[in-house]
Amino acid sequence: MGHSLMGGQPMDQHFIVMMIPHHDGAIAMADLALGRARRPEIKALARSIKDSQTQENAQMRTWYRQWFGGSVPAWGGAMGHGGGMGMMGMGGLGGTGTDVAWLKNASDFDRAFIEQMIPHHRMGVMMASMAQTNSQHPQLQALEQAMVTAQSQEIEQMAQWYRSWYGTS
Protein backbone atom coordinates (compact mmCIF):
# COMPACT_ATOMS: atom_id res chain seq x y z
CA MET A 1 0.00 0.00 0.00
CA GLY A 2 2.94 2.34 0.34
CA HIS A 3 1.97 3.63 3.77
CA SER A 4 3.32 0.73 5.74
CA LEU A 5 5.74 0.52 8.62
CA MET A 6 7.99 -2.13 10.07
CA GLY A 7 7.19 -5.57 8.75
CA GLY A 8 4.69 -4.14 6.30
CA GLN A 9 2.19 -3.35 9.04
CA PRO A 10 -0.24 -0.69 7.81
CA MET A 11 -0.28 2.63 9.63
CA ASP A 12 -3.92 2.13 10.65
CA GLN A 13 -3.17 -1.22 12.25
CA HIS A 14 -0.15 0.21 14.05
CA PHE A 15 -2.14 3.23 15.25
CA ILE A 16 -4.94 1.12 16.74
CA VAL A 17 -2.50 -1.20 18.51
CA MET A 18 -0.78 1.83 20.06
CA MET A 19 -3.80 4.03 20.75
CA ILE A 20 -5.90 1.50 22.66
CA PRO A 21 -3.40 1.11 25.53
CA HIS A 22 -2.81 4.88 25.46
CA HIS A 23 -6.56 5.41 25.92
CA ASP A 24 -6.56 2.73 28.63
CA GLY A 25 -4.04 4.84 30.54
CA ALA A 26 -6.29 7.91 30.40
CA ILE A 27 -9.31 5.80 31.39
CA ALA A 28 -7.41 4.45 34.43
CA MET A 29 -6.49 7.99 35.50
CA ALA A 30 -10.09 9.15 34.93
CA ASP A 31 -11.38 6.26 37.07
CA LEU A 32 -9.19 7.42 39.93
CA ALA A 33 -10.41 10.98 39.50
CA LEU A 34 -14.05 9.92 39.74
CA GLY A 35 -13.29 8.70 43.24
CA ARG A 36 -10.61 11.11 44.40
CA ALA A 37 -10.97 14.50 42.71
CA ARG A 38 -12.29 17.31 44.90
CA ARG A 39 -13.36 19.74 42.20
CA PRO A 40 -16.56 18.97 40.25
CA GLU A 41 -14.87 20.29 37.08
CA ILE A 42 -12.23 17.55 37.29
CA LYS A 43 -14.86 14.88 37.95
CA ALA A 44 -16.91 16.04 34.97
CA LEU A 45 -13.84 16.04 32.73
CA ALA A 46 -12.85 12.58 33.98
CA ARG A 47 -16.34 11.24 33.24
CA SER A 48 -16.17 12.70 29.73
CA ILE A 49 -12.68 11.27 29.04
CA LYS A 50 -13.71 7.87 30.33
CA ASP A 51 -16.91 7.77 28.25
CA SER A 52 -15.41 9.03 25.00
CA GLN A 53 -12.22 6.97 25.13
CA THR A 54 -14.03 3.77 26.17
CA GLN A 55 -16.32 4.27 23.17
CA GLU A 56 -13.38 5.01 20.84
CA ASN A 57 -11.56 1.86 22.00
CA ALA A 58 -14.65 -0.27 21.30
CA GLN A 59 -14.95 1.29 17.85
CA MET A 60 -11.24 0.73 17.06
CA ARG A 61 -11.45 -2.91 18.19
CA THR A 62 -14.44 -3.47 15.88
CA TRP A 63 -12.63 -1.93 12.91
CA TYR A 64 -9.48 -3.91 13.69
CA ARG A 65 -11.44 -7.18 13.48
CA GLN A 66 -13.10 -6.07 10.21
CA TRP A 67 -9.94 -4.77 8.53
CA PHE A 68 -7.11 -6.93 9.86
CA GLY A 69 -8.84 -10.05 11.24
CA GLY A 70 -8.50 -11.24 14.81
CA SER A 71 -8.44 -9.14 17.93
CA VAL A 72 -6.04 -6.34 18.80
CA PRO A 73 -2.77 -7.78 20.17
CA ALA A 74 -1.67 -6.70 23.62
CA TRP A 75 0.76 -3.77 23.57
CA GLY A 76 4.19 -4.72 22.27
CA GLY A 77 3.06 -8.10 20.97
CA ALA A 78 3.65 -7.81 17.26
CA MET A 79 5.06 -4.33 17.26
CA GLY A 80 8.68 -4.25 18.21
CA HIS A 81 10.12 -0.86 19.08
CA GLY A 82 11.66 0.50 15.91
CA GLY A 83 10.60 2.69 13.08
CA GLY A 84 7.57 4.69 12.20
CA MET A 85 5.69 5.68 15.28
CA GLY A 86 7.88 3.47 17.44
CA MET A 87 9.37 6.51 19.08
CA MET A 88 5.97 7.01 20.62
CA GLY A 89 6.09 3.63 22.24
CA MET A 90 6.28 5.41 25.56
CA GLY A 91 2.87 6.89 24.90
CA GLY A 92 1.38 3.43 24.77
CA LEU A 93 2.44 2.88 28.34
CA GLY A 94 1.38 6.24 29.71
CA GLY A 95 -0.98 6.00 32.62
CA THR A 96 -1.22 2.24 32.72
CA GLY A 97 1.35 1.68 35.44
CA THR A 98 3.54 4.28 37.06
CA ASP A 99 1.33 7.32 36.34
CA VAL A 100 -1.62 5.72 38.08
CA ALA A 101 0.44 4.55 41.06
CA TRP A 102 1.93 8.02 41.42
CA LEU A 103 -1.45 9.70 41.04
CA LYS A 104 -2.98 7.46 43.72
CA ASN A 105 -0.55 8.85 46.26
CA ALA A 106 -0.61 12.49 45.18
CA SER A 107 -1.28 14.89 48.04
CA ASP A 108 -3.10 17.38 45.79
CA PHE A 109 -4.95 15.01 43.50
CA ASP A 110 -6.61 17.60 41.25
CA ARG A 111 -3.33 19.35 40.51
CA ALA A 112 -1.51 16.05 39.91
CA PHE A 113 -4.31 14.88 37.61
CA ILE A 114 -3.93 17.94 35.37
CA GLU A 115 -0.13 17.64 35.43
CA GLN A 116 -0.41 14.03 34.23
CA MET A 117 -3.32 14.35 31.81
CA ILE A 118 -2.04 17.33 29.79
CA PRO A 119 1.14 15.58 28.56
CA HIS A 120 -0.79 12.33 28.13
CA HIS A 121 -3.31 14.13 25.91
CA ARG A 122 -0.51 15.94 24.04
CA MET A 123 1.00 12.57 23.16
CA GLY A 124 -2.41 11.34 22.00
CA VAL A 125 -2.90 14.42 19.81
CA MET A 126 0.54 13.95 18.27
CA MET A 127 -0.09 10.25 17.58
CA ALA A 128 -3.53 10.91 16.06
CA SER A 129 -2.47 13.83 13.88
CA MET A 130 0.54 11.92 12.53
CA ALA A 131 -1.55 8.82 11.80
CA GLN A 132 -4.29 10.85 10.17
CA THR A 133 -2.09 11.97 7.28
CA ASN A 134 -1.36 8.34 6.32
CA SER A 135 -4.66 6.68 7.15
CA GLN A 136 -6.16 4.31 4.57
CA HIS A 137 -9.62 4.30 6.12
CA PRO A 138 -11.83 7.42 6.02
CA GLN A 139 -13.77 6.33 9.14
CA LEU A 140 -10.55 6.06 11.16
CA GLN A 141 -9.31 9.34 9.72
CA ALA A 142 -12.49 11.02 10.95
CA LEU A 143 -12.04 9.47 14.40
CA GLU A 144 -8.41 10.63 14.51
CA GLN A 145 -9.54 14.16 13.63
CA ALA A 146 -12.19 14.00 16.36
CA MET A 147 -9.55 12.85 18.88
CA VAL A 148 -7.26 15.74 17.94
CA THR A 149 -10.11 18.25 18.29
CA ALA A 150 -11.52 16.91 21.58
CA GLN A 151 -8.19 16.36 23.30
CA SER A 152 -6.84 19.74 22.18
CA GLN A 153 -9.92 21.41 23.72
CA GLU A 154 -9.48 19.41 26.92
CA ILE A 155 -5.79 20.41 27.11
CA GLU A 156 -6.78 24.07 26.75
CA GLN A 157 -9.49 23.70 29.40
CA MET A 158 -7.10 22.02 31.87
CA ALA A 159 -4.44 24.68 31.22
CA GLN A 160 -6.96 27.43 32.01
CA TRP A 161 -8.04 25.74 35.24
CA TYR A 162 -4.41 25.26 36.20
CA ARG A 163 -3.65 28.95 35.74
CA SER A 164 -6.72 30.08 37.65
CA TRP A 165 -6.42 27.54 40.50
CA TYR A 166 -2.65 27.40 40.94
CA GLY A 167 -1.59 30.73 39.44
CA THR A 168 1.02 29.22 37.15
CA SER A 169 1.36 27.54 33.78
Rank of each mutant, 00 (worst) to 15 (best):
residue 140 L to P: 02
residue 43 K to Y: 06
residue 146 A to R: 14
residue 20 I to S: 04
residue 48 S to N: 11
residue 130 M to T: 14
residue 168 T to E: 08
residue 115 E to L: 13
residue 27 I to G: 09
residue 105 N to T: 13
residue 37 A to F: 02
residue 86 G to P: 03
residue 84 G to R: 05
residue 18 M to G: 14
residue 96 T to A: 00
residue 144 E to N: 02
residue 65 R to S: 10
residue 37 A to I: 06
residue 92 G to W: 01
residue 147 M to Y: 01
residue 145 Q to W: 03
residue 5 L to E: 08
residue 117 M to Y: 10
residue 153 Q to P: 01
residue 144 E to Q: 15
residue 75 W to A: 11
residue 99 D to S: 10
residue 127 M to Y: 04
residue 89 G to R: 05
residue 26 A to T: 10
residue 24 D to W: 01
residue 131 A to D: 00
residue 156 E to T: 14
residue 5 L to R: 06
residue 56 E to W: 07
residue 48 S to C: 04
residue 132 Q to V: 00
residue 93 L to H: 15
residue 110 D to Y: 05
residue 30 A to T: 05
residue 99 D to L: 12
residue 131 A to E: 06
residue 66 Q to Y: 02
residue 88 M to W: 07
residue 162 Y to T: 05
residue 113 F to N: 05
residue 151 Q to R: 09
residue 86 G to A: 15
residue 80 G to Y: 02
residue 14 H to D: 09
residue 105 N to A: 13
residue 53 Q to F: 03
residue 93 L to I: 11
residue 63 W to S: 10
residue 6 M to D: 13
residue 119 P to T: 06
residue 119 P to L: 11
residue 133 T to P: 00
residue 64 Y to M: 05
residue 107 S to E: 12
residue 8 G to E: 10
residue 130 M to W: 09
residue 149 T to A: 10
residue 3 H to N: 13
residue 30 A to M: 03
residue 113 F to L: 07
residue 164 S to R: 12
residue 55 Q to Y: 03
residue 15 F to E: 00
residue 143 L to Q: 14
residue 48 S to D: 15
residue 93 L to Y: 08
residue 44 A to F: 05
residue 119 P to Q: 04
residue 75 W to I: 06
residue 95 G to P: 12
residue 109 F to G: 03
residue 123 M to T: 15
residue 90 M to C: 05
residue 28 A to G: 14
residue 44 A to G: 02
residue 1 M to G: 15
residue 67 W to D: 06
residue 46 A to V: 05
residue 24 D to M: 07
residue 78 A to F: 03
residue 106 A to G: 00
residue 1 M to N: 04
residue 33 A to K: 02
residue 99 D to G: 15
residue 116 Q to I: 00
residue 38 R to Q: 12
residue 25 G to C: 06
residue 48 S to A: 12
residue 55 Q to H: 14
residue 116 Q to N: 13
residue 82 G to M: 13
residue 91 G to W: 01
residue 99 D to C: 00
residue 150 A to D: 06
residue 74 A to Y: 05
residue 31 D to P: 01
residue 8 G to I: 01
residue 168 T to R: 15
residue 85 M to V: 09
residue 107 S to D: 13
residue 24 D to L: 03
residue 148 V to L: 04
residue 168 T to P: 01
residue 67 W to I: 09
residue 76 G to H: 11
residue 100 V to Y: 00
residue 38 R to W: 04
residue 30 A to P: 02
residue 97 G to A: 12
residue 22 H to I: 04
residue 81 H to K: 15
residue 40 P to K: 00
residue 13 Q to C: 08
residue 115 E to H: 06
residue 54 T to N: 08
residue 116 Q to F: 08
residue 3 H to A: 07
residue 132 Q to T: 09
residue 28 A to S: 14
residue 125 V to S: 09
residue 116 Q to S: 14
residue 87 M to Y: 09
residue 162 Y to N: 05
residue 85 M to Y: 10
residue 137 H to S: 04
residue 86 G to T: 01
residue 144 E to V: 04
residue 15 F to G: 03
residue 143 L to D: 06
residue 31 D to F: 00
residue 127 M to S: 11
residue 145 Q to R: 14
residue 19 M to Q: 14
residue 88 M to E: 07
residue 26 A to K: 03
residue 39 R to I: 02
residue 118 I to R: 08
residue 51 D to E: 15
residue 160 Q to D: 11
residue 145 Q to S: 14
residue 130 M to Q: 13
residue 146 A to G: 12
residue 32 L to N: 02
residue 73 P to L: 08
residue 100 V to G: 04
residue 163 R to V: 06
residue 119 P to Y: 13
residue 109 F to K: 11
residue 83 G to E: 07
residue 14 H to L: 14
residue 60 M to N: 07
residue 88 M to A: 00
